[in-house]
């Protein structure tokens, strides 16, 4: 009986540590030391932009997380453009002109993506309607 309790306690402690360590996993990035800009503000901007840009090679990762050579090239390119004084939207436009909207991890709100953005709400409303209408009795 006692050993059972001990094992149970061990499992709880281990899962707790696994959980805690996943919190730190978020900080794992692919940016290499030689890429980092000296100007902290510019580096912050570069990091935020790279988090929104899809790695076209791996497709479900941002270029900020990816070790693919193309992701590194794009990270360097973004930093070059920031150093050249380009604004954020100009950098996004530069990338979408070449790779299309797919390179943005978040699809932009456009006429062609209206359904994508608003259908979930529509289904939610229909769902509520159905539940209320048929659950009265």
């Amino acid at each position: 009986m006692k050993t059972k309790k001990l094992i149970f306690r061990k499992i709880i402690v281990i899962t707790f540590f696994i959980f805690i360590s996943t919190l730190f996993l978020k900080n794992v990035i692919a940016v290499e030391p030689d890429e980092i800009l000296k100007n902290e503000k510019q580096e912050m901007r570069a990091r935020i932009i790279s988090k929104n840009i899809r790695c076209m090679v791996c497709q479900n990762q941002s270029i900020d997380d990816s070790n693919a050579p193309l992701a590194r090239d794009l990270r360097l390119l973004i930093r070059d453009q920031i150093k050249d004084g380009k604004k954020d939207y100009e950098i996004y436009n530069f990338l979408t002109d070449r790779y299309g909207d797919f390179i943005l991890l978040k699809p932009p709100l456009k006429l062609s993506t209206l359904a994508l953005w608003f259908l979930p709400f529509l289904f939610f409303i229909i769902g509520i309607f159905v539940v209320f209408k048929y659950s009265k009795k």
Binding site: L70, D73, R98, Y99
Partner: peptide, 13 residues
């Protein structure tokens, strides 16, 4: 050499 032309063409693989 550095892959910049490929980026201009939207090449990814």
């Amino acid at each position: 050499k550095n892959g910049r032309i490929a980026i201009d063409w939207g090449v990814y693989g």
